[in-house]
Write a protein that binds this DNA or RNA. Structure first.
Lengths: 144, 144
DNA sequence: AGTAGTCGTAACGTTAGTTGTTACGACTGT
DNA sequence: ACAGTCGTAACAACTAACGTTACGACTACT
């Protein structure tokens, strides 16, 4: 599977903003977050833009601009982040529609859809059990 | 997420072979399976080759050659198929190592690794609950 | 022994998604 | 007015999946 790191980077950004705000700062810049995540500020802005659409963060423009949390870290679950940044389903069905004249070709899509649906529900429940507060706690618990 | 259809096509092929054998045939050809899945025979051979490495199917060469199940459908779970055809992890960590001088950059990878590990375990347990026999039953239960 | 059918696999092009980068307009505190 | 930052478009690089062609390897059958 071509795993992508969108969820990881988005969680990184949220944890960074959350910690920064606890240190008394108002807003964090995409530049600062990009330096921590070792990537490009535009990548951060793109991801945070999707988180903003989902109502997880807010942004200010102009001088002294930057990003801040729209909700407390403990009220943001990984499922919220996942829904905000991951577009497609976990497993894809056939790229071309299978042969409908064949029994298997006809029934396989609904069958797999049912299976995948149940599995994705379980995955979502697992993601919903972890809050960004949990993540930040784990981050800070790592010995250096 | 760039979802791929490898698991879907592999399950399709197994279900097809299983049904074909129940109809009294010895082996199924990649050509037949490809026609049902509406793809290229080489794609099927590649996937079945990985299933063979995992001990799920067998192949014969020469005239009258083809593929047959190495195990009963009810003893093959989707987890077996998943492990055979899906190489990487579900979620990727950072592409470039984050800034180790930053508290978040230093702790984020172990933290996310822990979370992802737990989630993948749950996913695997779900996949292990579904056998190819279940899948074939669902396939045949679809009204036409 | 020859032939035909099928696998096994390499090679290559196409497509699609992610990521990185540059560029520049829009906005706003000073 | 200026400077700093967001917002976003545009494009290149990279990767993986997928489709296709090609051809050697193998074997049941005649």
């Amino acid at each position: 599977m071509s795993a992508n790191s969108r969820l990881t980077i988005a969680a990184h950004a949220l944890a960074w903003i959350g910690l920064y705000q606890r240190e008394g700062h108002e807003v964090a810049t995409s530049e600062q977050i990009a330096t921590s995540a070792n990537t490009n500020p535009v990548v951060i802005r793109r991801l945070l833009g999707e988180l903003r659409k989902a109502g997880l963060v807010e942004s200010r423009r102009g001088v002294g601009a930057g990003w801040s949390l729209a909700r407390e870290l403990e009220s943001i679950t990984l499922l919220d982040v996942y829904d905000a940044v991951e577009p497609g389903p976990l497993f894809a069905l056939h790229r071309a529609t299978p042969n409908q004249g064949c029994v298997v070709g006809h029934g396989i899509r609904p069958a797999m859809q049912g299976v995948y649906g149940g599995i994705e529900e379980t995955l979502r429940a697992e993601l919903a059990r972890v809050t960004m507060e949990d993540v930040l706690r784990d981050v800070l618990a790592v010995p250096r």
